[in-house]
Design a protein around this nucleic acid. Structure first.
Lengths: 199, 199
DNA sequence: GGCACCGGTCAACGGCTGTAGAGTGAACTC
DNA sequence: GAGTTCACTCTACAGCCGTTGACCGGTGCC
């Protein structure tokens, strides 16, 4: 309580901290109630600042939301594994996204608002689902590759929705291992028969 | 075009018709934009009446929403088929719910709002998902029956979400038959090994 | 034919929302 | 140490929302 010194926080540092606090509060509130019900006033209160400061930092509620739900493409492992490991990797990616160290609020916030907020809808469909499904389809191959990949993505998203958003007890309270054990074989069936390079 | 007569609509008949028109408009708007963004004024305009009349008929926006998204338990066939037909019946129920003759807007409206509206959330989780999953679990049997049923419900809901709400192209534009052909075997894998009556 | 009823409309209120602009005091620069 | 910058706050506005109560006119009943 003495070695801390007189709080030598520079102006830049303060700005970075409050911006992070606002972003964190926004993520939490967007995740909890969705875009429409989360108000800038509530975000500001949670972050301990004035509502006008939120506007000053992010320009508008829309831009705040976009910033708070930015999707990181690079933490998707399903695009980097051989065909047979796609189902397991897809599940691992889901668990990592929603239970990993990096705050899960951003993902929940995007998903929470994806049915009522036009841009969240577009982002989740195009930048997440279609983008991933397209890569998965390449690994699956065959005539129905696109549909198979789409159905796989749909099932994984259904799991995420049930477990983290709707919180259906049987799915929400199950262990990650149990879900992988039961669901991975089912997703594997979506891949279809093993590769046949030509045909 | 002449035998119609001078529109002999009684007062009761008029009331029933306008109430139905309001309900239909509400379903359509709730389905399109969700509970929060759909306004009573917009519903009234779409139904061709005054906003105050909507209040007079349904009491509040909440009650209007509840009425517009009432869930009919009786059209679920998955609870009336033997174990091996559960996956096919679950898919048939989904297609019937969202593409059947009885307006699909009610189902879309409930689903559209299930992530942001507390009561829609509760209804979809408890009255739809848990209720159905519980019945399915009974048919599946075994140690993990509840989780297996929950995962099956999650996958089917993921399909519905991708096809009718997010409209992911690969899933949305596929034929019902193709989806059944590819997804039914996968869902069948969720049932686990065939019944073993004791054990 | 007079009267009560009721489907329907009009105008308005209070509250909440996103947003804008002026102002303030402490941290930085020279 | 004076002047500037900038994080931050206060106050306010305009618009939209759900909701209400008074009012109007045709319909049904005696």
């Amino acid at each position: 309580m003495s070695t801390d010194g007189p709080a030598p926080v520079s102006r830049d540092e303060r700005r970075r901290r409050t911006e992070a606090a606002i972003l964190e509060a926004a993520r939490a509130l967007f995740a909890e109630t969705g875009f429409e019900r989360a108000t800038i006033r509530a975000v500001a209160t949670a972050a301990g600042v004035d509502p006008a400061l939120v506007m000053q930092y992010f320009g508008s509620k829309e831009k705040l939301f976009t910033e708070a739900t930015r999707w990181a493409h690079d933490q998707v492992s399903v695009l980097d594994v051989p065909r047979e490991q796609v189902p397991a990797a897809a599940l691992a990616d889901l668990f990592e996204t929603f239970e990993g160290a990096g705050g899960r609020d951003g993902a929940v916030a995007l998903m929470r608002s994806c049915l009522t907020h036009p841009e969240a809808n577009r982002t989740l469909r195009d930048d997440v689902m279609c983008s991933v499904a397209s890569g998965v389809a390449d690994r699956i191959g065959g005539e129905d590759a696109d549909l198979r990949a789409g159905l796989l993505a749909a099932c994984v998203m259904g799991l995420g929705l049930s477990r983290y958003l709707l919180r259906i007890p049987a799915v929400s309270e199950a262990s990650r291992a149990d879900i992988e054990r039961l669901l991975e074989p089912a997703l594997r069936a979506l891949l279809g028969p093993p590769d046949r390079p030509a045909g």
